[in-house]
Design a protein around this nucleic acid. Structure first.
Length: 616
DNA sequence: ATTAGGG
DNA sequence: CCCTAAT
């Protein structure tokens, strides 16, 4: 049994590129897996994430961006006669399988571009991606789709196909400059690199003129058609074309080879033909795909390139936008909101507090088609944001850390930072390095490792021990949407009570300290950007409650037990006292009243001061 | 659209 | 939390 992963619709068949695009554009992934029955099954969220992790890891490793890469996954599969697992990724544009099929015929008019050549450059540069792929069991693989602006996606998946729109738009400013390849020939490497940059918006370190030329030409031409690149990962290895050998070796039961190739590559030249074949053979399950691939390219032409035309990479809409506008995030936000997953309600443009974070979020739009066959509904979601219940996690943490000490220390730090930190700790985190499912972090080392020797590529392991149940729970827990429920009187009511986590409370307190009570919208925007739920009204209400709680606590004397309701999340005394202080400050505006205790807070702008520990 | 308050 | 009045 082999597992095949098809990545269709990548703008380019290189993982690296995909990775890059992720940061540059919202990327839409479609992950579909072919199960044992040969049915297309939507990949699970975890699988999608796994793929993302893979990509991210790869990216972080930092290879040369421009070099081709090979994705290799070593997974250990049993040798048994298992059905093949296939996973397909389709670009947003492509409709899953259907799309693939079309591909061949569809593109009669291939541009003459040079194919991309991984091969040329690649071989030297190959790198392995550290990632993962999972286990053999039934589902595993993932596929990445072509990155595209989400907006595009949303708008219509087919844009890409219709070369027109995309192309037409702003992508080509450079074109004029360069008039075709002719000029490219006389350019120096440096110039080519410049051009490359101008064309693709990113630097390249590649010095190979040919390569650069091709890329540039592609970039320019590309607009006209959409590129569907297919990566085929067979077993776990992704190989570029030309690596037949590896493929062959694949038969080794344990070790699987995943071959990734771009569709174009398969067409490539002379030697290619048989390559395809092999690939084909190798991946029994996937015949369809491979065949389709081949078809695609047919004509090639004038290019200096010998290879049949590869599909050209079509710059994504977003990419174009970025080039022209230079603005990165807004589309992302829009998209997100469209999708209804307001990870961040407010762009929080004013604050630079956490641009990076936001960007990360925005930049990634994950969409999955739930339906098989590509006709389905797209279920978009922001990928990496795993929202779990902060509170639970937090509480867990708290168990180990005496609340008072912990909190106070946290408070001592700068407000924002501390709160963010808390967040991370609480598992709300968006950052990838935050706690992620263990299956990603602790890959079960597969027995397959041994087989690896084949290539120099690095292997990645995709963990796929995700169990269905786990997944289920995951899904349910991750819905951070503000689920609303129609009420009898016709209004909408929030479905779930969202207990305030300590971290949220801390944030709120900090926010009040910084911006002042009453400026809820500000606090909301600045301090609660990551909590899309929690409206400014919520903040206000919570503050009110906190205030009450803090006051209730004062009367040391007596009746505390009955009068005071225990909040679901006990608010640490230090925080309550802090609340009190803030309240005092607010009300006692007059500076005249600066007692020693309040000294630090006289100024409303005041950030947390670290003095007087006793204070907190 | 945001706030303050009451329920 | 929701709802509403007042800004």
């Amino acid at each position: 049994m082999e597992t095949v992963v098809d990545i269709v619709g990548n703008e380019e068949a290189r993982v690296q590129d995909i990775t890059l695009q992720k940061t540059a554009d919202p990327v839409v992934y479609q992950l579909v897996r072919v199960d044992d029955n040969g049915e297309l099954v939507p990949a699970t969220d975890d699988e999608v994430m796994a793929v993302e992790d893979l990509l991210e890891d790869d990216n972080s490793k930092g290879g040369t961006p421009d070099t081709g890469r090979t994705l290799e996954c070593s997974t250990s599969y049993g040798c048994g006669p298992c059905g093949s697992d296939k996973v397909q990724f389709n670009g947003s544009e492509g409709q899953s399988q259907v799309e693939e099929l079309e591909v061949g015929p569809e593109k009669p008019r291939m541009p003459p571009n040079p194919a991309m050549d991984f091969v040329e450059t690649d071989s030297q540069h190959e790198e392995r991606i550290p990632s993962l792929i999972p286990n053999a069991s039934d589902d595993s693989v993932c596929q990445f789709g072509s990155p595209e602006g989400c907006s595009k996606l949303l708008g219509g998946t087919d844009e890409s196909k219709t070369s027109t729109s995309a192309t037409g738009t702003g992508l080509k400013p450079d074109f004029s400059l360069l008039n075709g390849e002719i000029q490219l020939d006389i350019l120096s490497v440096k110039d080519l690199q410049e051009t490359f940059k101008a064309t693709f918006g990113r630097e390249t370190s590649v010095k190979d003129k040919q390569w650069l030329k091709r890329r540039i030409i592609m970039g320019l031409t590309n607009s006209c058609d959409f590129s569907t690149t297919t990566f085929v990962i067979i077993d776990n290895r992704v190989v570029k074309k030309g690596r037949e050998e590896t493929c062959k070796t694949a038969d080794c039961p344990v070790l699987v080879d995943c071959v990734v190739r771009s569709a174009m590559e398969s067409h490539e030249g002379p030697s290619t033909s048989h390559d395809k074949h092999e690939t084909h053979a190798i991946a029994n399950g996937m015949q369809i795909r491979s065949s389709t691939f081949q078809e695609n390219c047919g004509s090639k032409d004038a290019d200096t390139e010998q290879r049949p035309a590869k599909r050209v990479r079509k710059p994504t809409k977003r990419y174009i936008e970025e080039l022209s506008e230079g603005e990165s995030r807004d589309s992302g936000d829009k998209i997100v909101s469209l999708v209804k997953h307001p990870a961040n309600d407010q762009p929080s443009a004013k604050v630079c507090a956490r641009p990076v974070q936001d960007f990360e979020l925005d930049g990634r739009c994950l969409t999955r088609k739930d339906s098989l066959g590509g006709s389905g509904i797209q279920v978009p979601y922001v990928s990496r944001i795993r929202r779990s219940r902060p509170r639970e996690n937090f509480m867990t943490l708290m168990k180990f850390q005496p609340s008072d000490m912990e909190i106070s220390s946290v408070l001592e730090k700068d407000g924002v930072e501390s709160s963010e930190q808390l967040d991370k700790e609480s598992g709300n985190e968006v950052l990838k390095n935050s706690l992620s499912p263990r299956w990603i972090q602790e890959p079960p080392v597969a027995s397959t490792e041994r087989c690896q020797p084949y290539t120099e590529k690095k292997t990645i392991q995709l963990e796929k021990e995700v169990k269905p149940k786990y997944l289920e729970s995951y899904k349910t827990s991750s819905d951070d949407e503000v689920a609303t429920v129609p009420t009898a009187n016709g209004g909408m009511r929030r479905k779930h009570h969202r207990p305030w986590s300590l971290s949220e409370v801390v944030k709120l307190v900090e926010g009040v300290a910084k911006y002042g009570a009453g400026r809820w919208s500000e606090i909301k925007r600045l301090a609660f950007a990551s909590y899309s739920y929690r409206t400014s009204v919520d903040l206000k209400d919570k503050w009110r409650n906190l205030l009450r709680a803090s006051l209730a606590e004062l009367p040391t004397g007596n009746g505390m037990p009955s009068s005071r309701k225990q909040a679901s999340v006990p608010i640490p005394a230090p925080i309550l006292s802090r609340v009190r202080e803030l309240a005092d400050i607010q009300t006692q505006v007059p500076p005249s009243f600066s007692s020693g205790r309040l000294a630090g807070f006289n100024d409303s702008n005041n950030t947390v001061h670290e003095t007087s520990p006793g204070f907190l």
